[in-house]
Amino acid sequence: MSTSVAEHETRHEALPARPKELAMHFDTLHQQYSTGKLAMWLFLGQELLFFCGLFTAYAVYRGNHQEMFHYAHYFLDWRLGGLNTVVLLTSSLTAAWSVRCAQLEQRKGLLITLALTFLCAGAFMVVKYFEYSHKLHIGAVWGSNFGVATADLPPALLEKYPGMTGQQLQLMGMGTFFAIYFCMTGLHGIHVLVGMGLYAWLFVRALRGHFNRRYYGAVDNVALYWHIVDMIWIFLFPLLYLIG
Protein backbone atom coordinates (compact mmCIF):
# COMPACT_ATOMS: atom_id res chain seq x y z
CA MET A 1 0.00 0.00 0.00
CA SER A 2 2.79 2.37 0.86
CA THR A 3 3.97 2.28 -2.75
CA SER A 4 0.49 2.71 -4.14
CA VAL A 5 -0.11 5.64 -1.85
CA ALA A 6 3.15 7.22 -2.91
CA GLU A 7 2.15 6.71 -6.51
CA HIS A 8 -1.17 8.28 -5.81
CA GLU A 9 0.43 11.31 -4.25
CA THR A 10 2.90 11.81 -7.07
CA ARG A 11 0.10 11.57 -9.56
CA HIS A 12 -1.83 14.09 -7.60
CA GLU A 13 1.08 16.52 -7.64
CA ALA A 14 1.59 16.01 -11.35
CA LEU A 15 -1.96 17.15 -12.06
CA PRO A 16 -2.47 20.78 -13.02
CA ALA A 17 -4.23 22.95 -10.46
CA ARG A 18 -7.92 22.08 -10.27
CA PRO A 19 -10.05 24.39 -12.42
CA LYS A 20 -12.39 26.46 -10.29
CA GLU A 21 -15.44 25.03 -12.06
CA LEU A 22 -14.50 21.44 -11.12
CA ALA A 23 -16.51 20.06 -8.21
CA MET A 24 -14.72 18.24 -5.39
CA HIS A 25 -15.95 14.76 -6.28
CA PHE A 26 -14.96 14.71 -9.96
CA ASP A 27 -11.52 14.04 -11.37
CA THR A 28 -11.78 15.90 -14.65
CA LEU A 29 -13.96 18.54 -16.24
CA HIS A 30 -14.91 16.06 -18.91
CA GLN A 31 -16.15 13.60 -16.32
CA GLN A 32 -18.20 16.35 -14.73
CA TYR A 33 -19.61 17.42 -18.10
CA SER A 34 -20.57 13.92 -19.19
CA THR A 35 -22.16 13.17 -15.81
CA GLY A 36 -24.32 16.28 -16.10
CA LYS A 37 -25.30 15.30 -19.59
CA LEU A 38 -26.27 11.75 -18.62
CA ALA A 39 -28.37 13.11 -15.77
CA MET A 40 -30.05 15.49 -18.21
CA TRP A 41 -30.90 12.66 -20.59
CA LEU A 42 -32.39 10.71 -17.71
CA PHE A 43 -34.41 13.76 -16.78
CA LEU A 44 -35.65 14.04 -20.35
CA GLY A 45 -36.61 10.38 -20.18
CA GLN A 46 -38.82 11.12 -17.21
CA GLU A 47 -40.25 14.16 -19.05
CA LEU A 48 -41.29 11.92 -21.92
CA LEU A 49 -43.00 9.49 -19.55
CA PHE A 50 -44.72 12.42 -17.87
CA PHE A 51 -46.24 13.54 -21.17
CA CYS A 52 -46.91 9.94 -22.20
CA GLY A 53 -49.74 9.78 -19.70
CA LEU A 54 -51.49 12.63 -21.46
CA PHE A 55 -50.87 11.19 -24.89
CA THR A 56 -52.42 7.94 -23.66
CA ALA A 57 -55.44 9.80 -22.36
CA TYR A 58 -55.70 11.51 -25.73
CA ALA A 59 -55.56 8.17 -27.55
CA VAL A 60 -58.15 6.55 -25.29
CA TYR A 61 -60.66 9.37 -25.53
CA ARG A 62 -60.08 9.80 -29.22
CA GLY A 63 -60.81 6.10 -29.66
CA ASN A 64 -63.97 6.39 -27.58
CA HIS A 65 -65.27 9.66 -29.07
CA GLN A 66 -64.22 9.88 -32.72
CA GLU A 67 -66.94 12.38 -33.61
CA MET A 68 -66.07 14.73 -30.79
CA PHE A 69 -62.48 15.07 -31.96
CA HIS A 70 -63.71 15.61 -35.47
CA TYR A 71 -65.85 18.58 -34.51
CA ALA A 72 -63.26 19.88 -32.10
CA HIS A 73 -60.61 20.59 -34.68
CA TYR A 74 -62.82 23.36 -36.09
CA PHE A 75 -62.30 25.24 -32.86
CA LEU A 76 -58.53 25.30 -33.26
CA ASP A 77 -56.92 27.64 -35.76
CA TRP A 78 -54.18 25.75 -37.61
CA ARG A 79 -52.66 29.05 -38.75
CA LEU A 80 -51.93 30.11 -35.16
CA GLY A 81 -50.69 26.63 -34.33
CA GLY A 82 -48.53 26.65 -37.46
CA LEU A 83 -47.11 30.04 -36.55
CA ASN A 84 -46.18 28.71 -33.13
CA THR A 85 -44.57 25.66 -34.70
CA VAL A 86 -42.36 27.89 -36.84
CA VAL A 87 -41.51 30.06 -33.83
CA LEU A 88 -40.49 27.04 -31.76
CA LEU A 89 -38.47 25.45 -34.56
CA THR A 90 -36.59 28.73 -34.95
CA SER A 91 -35.90 28.80 -31.22
CA SER A 92 -34.53 25.26 -31.41
CA LEU A 93 -32.13 26.44 -34.10
CA THR A 94 -30.92 29.35 -31.98
CA ALA A 95 -30.68 27.04 -28.95
CA ALA A 96 -28.43 24.63 -30.83
CA TRP A 97 -26.47 27.59 -32.15
CA SER A 98 -25.91 28.90 -28.63
CA VAL A 99 -24.20 25.63 -27.68
CA ARG A 100 -21.88 26.02 -30.66
CA CYS A 101 -21.12 29.62 -29.64
CA ALA A 102 -20.37 28.53 -26.08
CA GLN A 103 -18.00 25.82 -27.29
CA LEU A 104 -16.16 28.27 -29.54
CA GLU A 105 -16.16 30.98 -26.85
CA GLN A 106 -17.99 33.42 -29.17
CA ARG A 107 -19.32 35.60 -26.40
CA LYS A 108 -21.36 37.95 -28.55
CA GLY A 109 -22.88 35.14 -30.58
CA LEU A 110 -23.74 33.31 -27.38
CA LEU A 111 -25.55 36.31 -25.93
CA ILE A 112 -27.48 36.93 -29.14
CA THR A 113 -28.59 33.31 -29.59
CA LEU A 114 -29.61 33.00 -25.94
CA ALA A 115 -31.64 36.19 -26.19
CA LEU A 116 -33.27 35.06 -29.43
CA THR A 117 -34.27 31.74 -27.91
CA PHE A 118 -35.80 33.56 -24.98
CA LEU A 119 -37.69 35.92 -27.28
CA CYS A 120 -39.03 33.11 -29.46
CA ALA A 121 -40.30 31.35 -26.37
CA GLY A 122 -41.96 34.60 -25.35
CA ALA A 123 -43.55 34.98 -28.78
CA PHE A 124 -44.92 31.44 -28.46
CA MET A 125 -46.55 32.32 -25.18
CA VAL A 126 -48.08 35.50 -26.62
CA VAL A 127 -49.73 33.55 -29.43
CA LYS A 128 -50.85 30.99 -26.85
CA TYR A 129 -52.37 33.79 -24.79
CA PHE A 130 -54.51 34.94 -27.72
CA GLU A 131 -55.63 31.40 -28.45
CA TYR A 132 -56.54 30.72 -24.83
CA SER A 133 -58.34 33.99 -24.25
CA HIS A 134 -60.52 33.47 -27.31
CA LYS A 135 -61.52 30.02 -26.13
CA LEU A 136 -62.23 31.18 -22.60
CA HIS A 137 -64.22 34.06 -24.05
CA ILE A 138 -66.57 31.92 -26.14
CA GLY A 139 -66.76 29.21 -23.45
CA ALA A 140 -64.86 26.49 -25.27
CA VAL A 141 -63.55 25.03 -22.00
CA TRP A 142 -63.26 21.83 -20.00
CA GLY A 143 -65.74 19.34 -18.64
CA SER A 144 -69.30 20.38 -17.97
CA ASN A 145 -68.23 24.02 -18.09
CA PHE A 146 -68.20 23.77 -21.87
CA GLY A 147 -70.93 26.02 -23.19
CA VAL A 148 -70.49 27.76 -26.52
CA ALA A 149 -73.43 29.75 -27.85
CA THR A 150 -74.43 28.64 -31.34
CA ALA A 151 -73.57 32.11 -32.60
CA ASP A 152 -70.01 31.72 -31.35
CA LEU A 153 -69.38 28.44 -33.14
CA PRO A 154 -66.52 28.52 -35.66
CA PRO A 155 -67.91 29.57 -39.09
CA ALA A 156 -66.22 26.65 -40.84
CA LEU A 157 -68.08 24.25 -38.58
CA LEU A 158 -71.44 25.89 -39.22
CA GLU A 159 -70.76 25.89 -42.94
CA LYS A 160 -70.16 22.16 -42.98
CA TYR A 161 -72.89 21.28 -40.47
CA PRO A 162 -75.51 24.04 -40.76
CA GLY A 163 -77.87 22.71 -38.12
CA MET A 164 -75.28 22.31 -35.38
CA THR A 165 -75.91 23.97 -32.04
CA GLY A 166 -73.65 24.65 -29.10
CA GLN A 167 -75.80 22.53 -26.86
CA GLN A 168 -75.52 19.52 -29.17
CA LEU A 169 -71.76 19.77 -29.01
CA GLN A 170 -71.90 20.00 -25.26
CA LEU A 171 -73.97 16.84 -25.01
CA MET A 172 -71.54 15.14 -27.33
CA GLY A 173 -68.90 15.58 -24.62
CA MET A 174 -66.88 18.35 -26.21
CA GLY A 175 -65.84 19.29 -22.66
CA THR A 176 -63.67 16.19 -22.53
CA PHE A 177 -61.79 17.26 -25.62
CA PHE A 178 -61.10 20.65 -24.16
CA ALA A 179 -60.08 19.11 -20.84
CA ILE A 180 -57.40 17.22 -22.75
CA TYR A 181 -56.55 20.20 -24.93
CA PHE A 182 -56.00 22.52 -21.99
CA CYS A 183 -54.08 19.91 -19.99
CA MET A 184 -51.72 19.08 -22.83
CA THR A 185 -51.07 22.59 -24.09
CA GLY A 186 -51.11 23.96 -20.55
CA LEU A 187 -48.48 21.53 -19.32
CA HIS A 188 -46.45 22.22 -22.43
CA GLY A 189 -46.87 25.95 -21.80
CA ILE A 190 -45.56 25.53 -18.25
CA HIS A 191 -42.49 23.86 -19.73
CA VAL A 192 -42.02 26.78 -22.12
CA LEU A 193 -42.18 29.19 -19.17
CA VAL A 194 -39.59 27.13 -17.28
CA GLY A 195 -37.45 27.22 -20.43
CA MET A 196 -37.72 31.00 -20.53
CA GLY A 197 -36.53 31.15 -16.93
CA LEU A 198 -33.59 28.90 -17.76
CA TYR A 199 -32.61 30.99 -20.77
CA ALA A 200 -32.77 34.18 -18.69
CA TRP A 201 -30.48 32.48 -16.15
CA LEU A 202 -28.06 31.38 -18.90
CA PHE A 203 -28.05 34.89 -20.32
CA VAL A 204 -27.01 36.36 -16.99
CA ARG A 205 -24.31 33.75 -16.52
CA ALA A 206 -23.05 34.34 -20.06
CA LEU A 207 -22.94 38.10 -19.38
CA ARG A 208 -20.74 37.36 -16.38
CA GLY A 209 -18.51 35.23 -18.58
CA HIS A 210 -19.08 31.92 -16.79
CA PHE A 211 -18.77 29.75 -19.88
CA ASN A 212 -15.70 28.66 -21.79
CA ARG A 213 -14.64 25.90 -24.17
CA ARG A 214 -14.07 23.51 -21.26
CA TYR A 215 -17.12 24.47 -19.27
CA TYR A 216 -20.38 24.92 -21.13
CA GLY A 217 -22.48 22.01 -19.79
CA ALA A 218 -25.31 24.25 -18.61
CA VAL A 219 -25.85 25.72 -22.09
CA ASP A 220 -25.76 22.25 -23.59
CA ASN A 221 -28.18 20.75 -21.08
CA VAL A 222 -30.72 23.55 -21.27
CA ALA A 223 -30.63 23.28 -25.05
CA LEU A 224 -31.39 19.56 -24.70
CA TYR A 225 -34.34 20.41 -22.50
CA TRP A 226 -35.48 23.02 -24.98
CA HIS A 227 -35.36 20.53 -27.85
CA ILE A 228 -37.63 18.15 -25.99
CA VAL A 229 -40.12 20.93 -25.30
CA ASP A 230 -40.00 21.67 -29.00
CA MET A 231 -40.38 18.02 -29.91
CA ILE A 232 -43.45 17.57 -27.74
CA TRP A 233 -45.06 20.48 -29.54
CA ILE A 234 -44.24 18.84 -32.87
CA PHE A 235 -46.52 16.01 -31.72
CA LEU A 236 -49.17 18.21 -30.13
CA PHE A 237 -49.65 20.39 -33.19
CA PRO A 238 -50.85 17.72 -35.64
CA LEU A 239 -52.73 15.71 -32.99
CA LEU A 240 -54.77 18.67 -31.81
CA TYR A 241 -54.89 21.11 -34.73
CA LEU A 242 -54.55 19.12 -37.93
CA ILE A 243 -56.22 15.72 -37.58
CA GLY A 244 -59.94 16.19 -38.17
Binding site: W142, G143, S144, N145, G175, T176, A179, F182, C183
Partner: peptide, 11 residues
Amino acid sequence: FKIGIFLPQYG
Protein backbone atom coordinates in the same frame (compact mmCIF):
# COMPACT_ATOMS: atom_id res chain seq x y z
CA PHE B 1 -61.85 22.65 -11.84
CA LYS B 2 -63.90 19.48 -12.55
CA ILE B 3 -62.33 19.08 -15.98
CA GLY B 4 -63.75 15.64 -16.71
CA ILE B 5 -60.71 13.38 -17.20
CA PHE B 6 -61.50 10.82 -14.51
CA LEU B 7 -64.86 11.89 -13.10
CA PRO B 8 -67.79 10.20 -14.81
CA GLN B 9 -70.28 12.99 -14.12
CA TYR B 10 -68.19 15.33 -16.29
CA GLY B 11 -67.43 12.80 -19.02
